[in-house]
């Protein structure tokens, strides 16, 4: 067990290193002078020179990379050009809303998607199945922000049940926080529900064809026990995997959702940074989200071996 975990941990190091190389090279391999790209069209040559000096762009590529990665590992991502703060400070400030939105969305999506998928598999070919599958194709096709504005228009503007936009920290006022989280998490959960429900359905259908399900039925167990205890548990691995892989979709969706609902999180930060050509911030946020994505999937992989003793790599 320990050997497996150790091996899996070591296997992520090259991936993380490659992410770092890629994020580092993005700026350096851009055609033209990176310092001029960052400074923008209206910059003077002194400003360009200052940026070049600040980022160490006049040193050889390898030593730039070593310095940059050593600093990044210590949490030093440099200073934001636009916000006039260190990037690390900015990220710490903006992390709470994004984290809250993501957690609410994952909880909501799992609570909706797994029962839907199991139901669809149980009555495979029936009307519930058709509705669930239809919804899942639709969920992949409707842009997040269109769903967002539609929900705002119906529930906030027309019905006036929920606040339109904005964020309130849960440490300030839990009720307000939850009220303002409902629409954004529903918006963001839709694509995630589509993904999870589809995989749940497929893997439960596959498991339902197994001999032990027939045995369980033959013993006279009720449908619910067969579905929940035998089918769902054995179908869990692909479902949990897709929840992990779906984090990438969630991150992309969070950027848009935060813009629609005016939530001051990391997604808004990255959009503002792009508009202000604030490259240290963009780089740090991309790096951070990618690391989080890889680490979540690592944790999920390791978690399997606890849930399912058959899995050994």
């Amino acid at each position: 067990m320990l050997i497996f975990i150790a091996r899996r941990l070591i296997a992520t190091i090259p991936v993380l290193a490659m992410v770092a190389v890629f994020v580092f090279l993005m700026l350096r391999l851009t055609p033209g002078d990176p310092a001029a790209v960052i400074a923008g069209d209206s910059a003077t040559s002194e400003q360009v020179e200052e940026i070049r000096e600040k980022l160490g762009l006049n040193r050889p590529l390898i030593s730039q990379f070593v310095i940059w990665s050593a600093k990044s590992l210590q949490g030093d991502f440099g200073e934001s050009f636009f916000f006039k703060k260190t990037v690390a400070e900015l990220i710490v400030q903006r992390i709470e809303p994004t984290l809250a939105l993501s957690v609410c969305t994952i909880v909501l999506a799992v609570l909706i998607a797994i029962p839907l998928g199991v139901l669809a598999a149980h009555r495979s070919g029936g009307w519930i199945d058709r509705v669930v599958m239809g919804f899942s194709v639709l969920g992949f096709s409707v842009p997040v922000f269109v769903v967002g504005y539609l929900l705002i228009y119906v529930f906030a503007v027309q019905l006036n049940w929920l606040p339109v936009q904005g964020y309130r920290s849960f440490t300030d006022d839990l009720g307000e926080f939850l009220l303002r989280m409902i629409l954004p998490s529903v918006t963001l959960a839709i694509i995630y529900v589509a993904l999870i429900a589809r995989i749940t359905r497929a893997s439960v259908i596959e498991v339902l064809g197994e001999d032990y399900i027939r045995t369980a039925r033959a013993k006279g167990l009720t449908d619910r026990v067969v579905l929940m205890r035998h089918a769902l548990r054995n179908a869990a691995v692909p479902i949990v995997t897709v929840i992990g892989i779906g984090i990438a979709l969630l991150i992309g969706g969070a950027i848009v959702t935060e813009s629609v609902y005016n939530i001051p999180g990391l997604g808004r930060l990255v959009v503002d940074a792009v508009l202000a050509r604030d490259f240290p911030v963009i780089q740090a946020v991309i790096l951070m989200f990618s690391f989080v994505y890889v680490l979540i999937n690592l944790v999920i992989d390791i978690a399997y071996s606890f849930f399912d003793p058959r899995i050994r790599y």
Partner: peptide, 23 residues
Amino acid sequence: MRFMDGMMAIPAILLAIGLVSLW
């Protein structure tokens, strides 16, 4: 494949945003 794994670990929209900001 190691390089591709690294690229795949960056969420697609985020990578596209990063590239657009440069180009």
